[in-house]
Nucleic acid binder design. Structure first.
Lengths: 252, 252
DNA sequence: TTCCGAATTTAACCCATGTAACCATACCAA
DNA sequence: TTGGTATGGTTACATGGGTTAAATTCGGAA
């Protein structure tokens, strides 16, 4: 199972017509009526496949394009001078990547693939044009950004105020929720590409401490994390430990 | 001086016409041409003065209004079950407050005043109407949100990856930059209302540790923080310690 | 099959930061 | 003035998580 999932990533599903897009309902413009999709389609330039562990764009550099992640996993991150890394967001099919490029010269973070990935590519200028001509896209994006900010504020609150065990539990529950909405879970198991180092960098911990804490969570019968696979052993217990409410599971 | 500053807050300056608004250039819709300001004006309902230490709205509750902070200081925050608090953002004149209310039933955070404050109040429905009729506002807000998200990502990175001394230095430098843009600094001193507890709650520390760390920063001749007043003793040194680049000082 | 590098696990030790308790000071309302 | 309530400072002690390093497991390439 792990094998097959990993092999799947070697040839990601490639995007086709926006009108038939299977990840549209998870995208930033999910609320835009189907009748306006042809404008979105026309803003797309040639799409792209990116291998694992490659950057999609770089912090502090300019970018002429933005993207919708069509298939695969990726993440955004910032690097400090001494090489420490802070992961900001895990990107799943439907995620909008690189909005900042629309108005600002330098990107505030980098983006990197976790698996082989396929991207819907939008030329910055064409996309701006789309927004000017179709305000309904703008409205949807504004809502999407508002919701993204709320998600980021939850993470900020986790980093500032919760111990390692809760941080890990909450991140897994967040991703579990997003994957469930995408119908990408199999019972209580799902394919999970981030390594312990990625969790550490997302949660403000070290990989050593992540390893220690995962041991505890496994021994308590709450969560099992193997390479490429996560299994939630006790959803209720995990939610309780993390005080992860239902309302937190909505909105992206 | 401390006295007079504190007294000033007892009667905040009240908002008047949008066309003559002194904080407009720091507001979310700063880029909207003056010719369209009358629409903004018409979306405003009766404005409001809120005393210090009062909530403007509550996490998990609904809200029918959103606000521009016209005068005074405030902050947004989340509370955990056990009472721990995470401050998300310090609000200064021009800050837009409560956008989430436009689309979502429950607010994802609370907002509270630090000083006596005056607010431009916008009825949610009227504001939505404004956006529908004047897409240029929508566009500006989208840009504002994108920039806000980048600011939040910097803070996330600070909490996840930087020690207490750098976090404090960077927060002070951030606020110093925002106040400088607003012409609210007097040389290297400025009125500063957050208490050490607020800094702690914004930076994921305890007030004890903030106190300790501020001692160090003072002894090193970098930064002096008294009640209601902050003084940057060595801007260059502080920037260096915090590796706070010029580019980080832009965009809100 | 064998080998190599990446990822994980474990252990020992240490430090940054948290906790708890208490005192001092400043402010404010009566 | 006085007492109450924030706030700030300081100390002693506890601990979560970092650091370092070594052993181990795993996956993929030859």
């Amino acid at each position: 199972m792990v094998k097959s999932a990993a092999r799947l990533r070697l040839s990601p599903v490639q995007p086709g017509l926006c009108a038939k897009c299977p990840v549209r309902k998870f995208a930033a413009y999910s609320g835009v009526p189907a009748s306006a999709l042809k404008f979105l389609q026309s803003a797309r330039s040639s799409d792209r496949i990116v291998p694992p562990r490659r950057n999609i764009f770089w912090e502090e550099k300019g970018a002429d394009e933005l993207f919708t992640l069509y298939d695969g996993w990726a993440f955004t991150f910032k690097l400090l001078a001494d090489g420490r890394r802070q992961i900001l967001e895990f990107l799943l099919p439907g995620s909008l990547i690189g909005m900042h490029a629309l108005w600002f010269k330098a990107m505030p973070h980098s983006a990197q693939t976790l698996t082989s990935v396929s991207l819907c590519v939008f030329d910055k200028e064409k996309f701006r044009d789309l927004l000017r001509r179709k305000p309904e896209y703008e409205r949807e994006l504004l809502k999407y950004m508002t919701s993204s900010l709320a998600v980021r504020d939850r993470r900020l609150s986790d980093l500032g105020r919760r111990p390692a065990k809760e941080r890990i539990a909450r991140l897994i529950l967040e991703i579990f929720g997003r994957l469930t909405a995408r119908d990408m879970v199999d019972g209580h198991s799902f394919t999970f590409y981030p390594r312990q180092q990625h969790l550490a960098d997302a949660l403000g911990l070290t990989k050593v401490h992540v390893s220690r804490t995962l041991q505890v969570l496994r021994q308590e019968g709450l969560l099992e994390l193997e390479r490429d696979t996560a299994t939630i052993l006790d959803l209720k217990g995990l939610r309780e430990l993390a005080d992860y409410t239902e309302t937190e599971a909505s909105g992206w």
